[in-house]
Amino acid sequence: MKFWREPLDVDQIKVTQGVVTVLEERCKGCEFCISYCSRGVLVMSQKFNRKGYHFPEVIEPKLCVNCHFCEVICPEFAIFSQEAPEAANPGASAGQGD
């Protein structure tokens, strides 16, 4: 992320790490979550679910910042994110990402 002015407390800010869960059987493949994920975490899977739809797949789990946008935009209630447990999240710090 680029700032027009470097925040003074940039070294203290912790970027939250999220974990995305996809409930594959509920998905109808509308691609809303994939298109509107601001971090590019998701991609369309090649696999089908029981109803014959492709569903999203997490390809960049480290980039997720737990913004919950996939969760609120999903019309099928098929995807949600939650904060990663501390143990699985040791390297989360400022300046992560591009």
Partner: peptide
Amino acid sequence: TLPQAEHPQDALLRTERIPHIWCAG
């Protein structure tokens, strides 16, 4: 290790009726 495996909206949903009838998208 995650706190939950259920969708946060499930508390207000009649989950036995999901997936709903609305079209994809």
